[in-house]
Nucleic acid binder design. Structure first.
Lengths: 327, 327
DNA sequence: GTGAAAGCGCTAACAC
DNA sequence: GTGTTAGCGCTTTCAC
């Protein structure tokens, strides 16, 4: 490994001068600079992030925490984060926590050790206490999922209103018996979307049946399929389904087909997120679009502002109802 | 930030003793250990990765380079890598290169700086020269895509044979006019799969028409759709399509529907990768399964062995033809 | 405009 | 068993 000392020797200057050239902040005589730059190229020198960080606590690295990369929902957000961060000289490291506190702890330590300068957390099941504690001393923002009682700034959408809109769309299409495929309600968005569902039903004087509400533990197509299987065994079957994630909705779509039923004639279905596959499903899936790319951009701006000591405010962005062929 | 010195002071011992307790390699008197452990908890101390790495070049961090996380193909591989790495005390950092040499360079530097101990590259468009050069001094393995002329060990499948099998399956189902939706042929796998396609056609005495071969630049559903649009304008239309990625195949499926044609009756289609969505498509997609999870596990084993100075050999794993409803 | 030297947090060799 | 200390690669005062 070639270090600053080697470059200094070859260029015939001190390590301090090399450092000045590398960070080009102070001014260095032009011919000295040329010599040093030549030596750097000659030796193919790259400054050690380790040595530098130890000294300056500046790594230009951001951590993005997410439970799993397998949900395409995160993909667009990450694109937004990356584009924004890179434009401002930051790079990002993706950390898959698998909702495992031990793994979270490792990534938290990367922050505490100043290896990274900030965290954007998209993990709904993250250890909230640790996160809040950490946020007192380090820059942290939350994206999509957040904690109502925490001071950590977030960017998100109004999940309750979005769910209300989705269910209202179903009702306005003539449906009265509407099922809900929800996630685990320890997640805020799951609670909010259930509230939206219930409010929409109540606002239209429609009954809510406990047996029409299905809770899935993880985000997996199979659970959307399971939900439909359960729903189709009921005596009083729903004619429409609101799934809180396109992943469930696509699984549901599939399973409805397998039972020889037609979407939307026999059962209408609406999802949530507008993941890229939602347009490839058959029929194309109606859904609620979140401005994912924008959410990514904003959360990146927020964390970089926070790092630079600029106060940031939480943001709630607009969602959009996308009517396609499944409703 | 609480450092080893603070712990030492609180516990009334030297920093060396704290270090010993933290790394519990040497033996420390039981009551000293208890005191130190108490102080660590009391102060909520976590050793600095930075300080430690600078001294030991041991970070227990692996870098995984991938062009884009939006291709579900990588998801399963990453699961395999993570499970294996974590079982052996390593953590991984996902690095999305976006096939951008500048971003690659940043991640390469993380390795040169000993911030990470090794790289698993899944990026087919990675700067091969840099990678080869780097591999002379640092542990690197390739997963899925590789370079025939490089000494870097890899784990992959026999893409040519797999393509041969896919096309043969189409031919045995009665098809004679078979189109190919391929990726950019600067990628090895694209060249190999085209070879397999051509060999299968030739082996069965079937003609290969230039107009039946479509090249997509990126991995995107839309390009699968574009391909079908082109193919359906031909006077001499193919009756079957082999797509080198499920992503293209699913886009193709969609577009064939839009034209009011039926799969597989009017056009049969087979993909490649067995991504999770391939089973959610309508009709379900026939495809070539790669042992993605296993590839991930093996590449993780390989890189960790390499780090520990154990010689590793490249591996070519078996693929599998998955016949579903699209053929 | 440039160099010498201290010190970031840690580990390991050496001394006791 | 435990403490002292050098040094990992770098930046940044402080002199000159």
């Amino acid at each position: 490994m070639v270090k600053i000392h080697d470059v200094a020797k070859l260029a015939g200057v001190s390590v301090a001068t090399v450092s000045r050239v590398v960070n080009n902040n102070e001014r260095v005589a032009e011919n000295t600079r040329v010599k040093v730059e030549w030596a750097i190229r000659e030796l193919n020198y790259a400054p050690s992030v380790l040595g530098r960080n130890l000294r300056t606590s500046k790594s230009n690295l951001l951590l993005v925490l997410l439970p799993s990369i397998s949900n395409p929902f995160y993909t667009e957000i990450i694109n937004g984060i990356e584009d924004t961060a890179i434009a401002r000289g930051y790079n990002i490291l993706l950390c898959e926590t698998d909702s495992n506190p031990k793994r979270e702890a490792i990534y938290f330590n990367l922050l505490r050790n100043r290896l990274a300068e900030g965290i954007i957390s998209m993990d709904p099941s993250v250890n909230k206490n640790k996160l809040n504690e950490l946020s007192e001393s380090y820059p942290i923002v939350q994206c999509s999922e957040y904690d109502t009682e925490s001071p950590i700034p977030y960017v998100t959408i109004d999940s309750e209103q979005a769910a209300y809109d989705a269910v209202t769309h179903l009702i306005e299409s003539g449906h009265q018996k509407i099922a809900l495929i929800n996630s685990d309600e320890r997640f805020l968005y799951a609670r909010q979307r259930r509230n939206g569902y219930e409010k929409a039903m109540e606002a239209h004087g429609l009954p809510i049946k406990g047996e029409w509400i299905y809770h899935a533990e993880q985000l997996d197509f199979k659970l959307g399929q399971n939900a439909i299987r359960k729903l189709l065994q009921l005596d009083d079957q729903p004619t429409a389904v609101f799934a809180v994630s396109d992943v469930y909705a696509i699984g549901a779509l599939k399973e409805i087909h397998r039972h020889g039923k037609k979407v939307p004639e026999d059962i209408a279905i609406i999802g949530f997120d507008k993941i890229i596959f939602s347009d490839m499903a058959f029929p194309t899936l109606s859904t609620i679009a979140q401005p994912m790319y924008e959410m990514g951009c904003i959360s990146a701006e927020m964390i970089m502002d926070k790092i630079n000591g600029i106060a940031v405010k939480s943001r709630v962005l607009d969602h959009q109802l996308i009517c396609r062929d499944s409703t």
